[in-house]
Design a binder for these strands. Structure first.
Lengths: 275, 275
DNA sequence: ATAATAGTGTCTATCAGACATTATCTG
DNA sequence: CAGATAATGTCTGATAGACACTATTAT
C-alpha cells in the first residue's frame, strides 16, 4: 500500500514532522466546577467556593478550577480538581458548557469548560495553593434571584435575575440576566456559569437520577423530595412525587429513621438495583 | 479607595503587566459543526461533510470546522464556518459538547467545541481552502448503526453501533461504541461527535422547536412528522403527533399543497407566533 | 373502482396536580 | 390530648399509544 502524498508531495509522517502548530494563537483552557451538595438538614443546596488569593479578582469568591494539562482530558482535570478540593473521587461529574467570550479573563485568552459535580455529603474543605480559603455557601436560585451566603463568615453574594425570553427563528430561549445587588461579587463570569449549570440541572433532574447523587446511600422520601424541591425551587405534591419515584426505590427493610422533632418516623429507602 | 496588593506587593495593574501566560502549555481550539437538513423529499436527514485535502486523514470525509480566533467566541467561529460552507447565517446553531481527549489530532494538542446547526434547505456547497470537496450525505442513525452515504459520489461510510449501558453510582449512561464496517471512514473522532450530537438532538426535539428549524417556513404536517421520525428513527402515531403540535402551528389559510403521487392534498401550516 | 395519502374520532392506560384522610410520633 | 410529620386514597384533566374510520386525490 503506497503512501498518500499531499499537494507538497509529503507523506503523513513527513507532514507531521514538519507541521508548525504556531500558525494560530492558542487559548489557555481551564475547567471550573460547580460542586453541589445538600445542606445537612436538607433545607437547601450548598455550593463550594474558593476565595481568590491573587489578582485578578483577588479576594473575590470563585468556582474552584484549574488548567487542563496536555496529557489529560478536561474530565480528568475536573476530577483532579474535585479531589483536591473535597477528597472525593468517582462521584457525579458531568460537562455543562464551554465559555469562550474574549476578555472573560483579564490576564489572557482563557476558555473554561464548566463541570457540574453532585456530592452526597459536605466534606470539610480548605484552601490550597491559589486560594486563600474555601467554604460551602448556601445557594438559592430561582427565576428572580441567585444568592450565595455563608453565615459563619458573614458573606453574602446576591444577584437579581431578569428572565428574558427571546426567539431566534423557531427556537425560544430563556436567559437570565444577573445584576449584582451585594457588596461582594463572584469572580470572572462565574455567575453565568452557575446560571447555566443550574438551568441544565433543573431541566434534567426530573428525567434522570441526579437527585440520588445528592442524598446518602439510604434516605427517606421526605429527604429525597427536599432535594427535588431545592433544585427546582418549587414545592412538589407529596403523592405525585412518591408515585413518580416509587418504581426507582426500595425499602431497606431496616427500621425507620428517627427525626429531629415531633412527627411520624419515615421509612428508609435505597435506590433500586438495575435489572 | 486604596488598591489591593497581592503577596508580592503588586496591584492588579502591576500584576497583569507582569503576568506570564507561558506557564502552562496551551491547546489549539477548533469548532466542528454538524450541519443537518432534511432530504428534499423528506425521506431522511442529510449531513454536510467536507473531504480533507491534506494530512492528517487526507482524503477522508470530516465535519466542517475551523480554529477559534482570539477576538471571537466559539459560537462566532462556528457561525463564520457555517456561513463559509453554506452561505447561511442566523439559523439554528447550538453548542453540543467539548471534546478533549489527548491524541485526538495527531498533529498537536487540539480541543474541539462541537456545534449543531439545523438548516431549512440544503444549500449548494463547495470545498474551500482546506477541503478538496464538500457534499451532503444521507445520514442514518439508530441504536445499532450509523451510516453516511452519498449516492452520486458512490461513497458510503458505515459504523455498527453497540449500545452499552453503564452506571456510575445512581446515574445510568448509554454509550454507543462505533466499529467501522466500510472502506471509507470519518476523520479524527468525528463519529463520536456525530453520535453525541444525535443523542442530544433526539433527547431534545420532543421538548422544543428544533424540528421547525428543519422544515421551510410553511410546511405540511406529514412533512413535519417526517422530520420527527427521521431524527427519532422511529415511526410516530399520526393522531398523537398532531395532538402534540396542534397548539404550536396554525393553518396558513393558503390552499393545500399538491403532492407527488396519488392521495389527498395536505394543508399548509406555519409556526404559530408567540404570544 | 382502487390504491394511496390526509385527516379525525375514540378508547385506554398513565400520570401530574390537587386535596382529603389516616397513621404515627413528641411532649 | 394537641401539634407535627409521614403515608396513602381518590378525583380530575391532560396526554401518549393504539386502532378505526372518513375524506380527498391520481390513475
Amino acid at each position: 500500500m503506497e503512501k498518500l502524498r499531499n499537494k507538497d508531495g509529503l507523506t503523513e509522517e513527513e507532514f507531521l514532522k514538519k507541521y508548525n502548530p504556531g500558525k494560530y494563537n492558542r487559548p489557555s483552557v481551564t475547567t471550573d466546577i460547580l460542586i453541589l451538595g445538600m445542606n445537612e438538614d436538607y433545607s437547601g443546596l450548598k455550593i463550594l467556593l474558593i476565595k481568590r488569593g491573587n489578582h485578578p479578582f483577588m479576594g473575590c469568591w470563585a468556582l474552584p478550577g484549574g488548567f487542563v494539562q496536555e496529557d489529560e482530558t478536561a474530565y480528568q482535570a475536573a476530577a483532579r480538581e474535585l479531589e483536591e478540593e473535597t477528597g472525593l473521587r468517582g462521584g457525579y461529574l458531568d460537562q455543562i458548557y464551554t465559555f469562550t467570550k474574549p476578555g472573560r479573563d483579564p490576564r489572557m485568552w482563557v476558555m473554561s469548560i464548566a463541570y457540574l459535580s453532585l456530592v452526597q455529603e459536605l466534606e470539610a474543605v480548605k484552601g490550597n495553593d491559589d486560594a486563600d480559603d474555601a467554604a460551602w455557601f448556601d445557594l438559592k436560585f430561582d427565576d428572580s434571584l441567585i444568592s450565595l451566603r455563608n453565615e459563619e463568615k458573614g458573606i453574602e453574594i446576591v444577584y437579581d435575575l431578569k428572565k428574558e425570553t427571546f426567539s431566534n427563528g423557531a427556537m425560544q430561549y430563556e436567559n437570565f440576566i444577573p445584576s449584582l445587588k451585594s457588596k461582594e461579587a463572584l469572580a470572572f463570569d462565574h455567575v453565568e456559569i452557575i446560571i447555566e449549570a443550574m438551568k441544565k440541572l433543573r431541566e434534567q433532574i426530573l428525567y434522570n437520577n441526579q437527585a440520588f447523587c445528592l442524598v446518602k446511600d439510604t434516605f427517606t422520601l421526605p429527604e429525597l423530595q427536599a432535594v427535588y424541591e431545592a433544585v427546582l425551587s418549587r414545592p412538589l405534591y407529596k403523592k405525585s412525587f412518591r408515585d413518580m419515584i416509587s418504581d426507582r426505590v426500595e425499602e431497606t427493610g431496616e427500621e425507620k429513621k428517627s427525626c429531629v422533632k415531633a412527627g411520624r418516623r419515615s421509612k428508609e429507602y435505597r435506590l433500586k438495583k438495575i435489572k
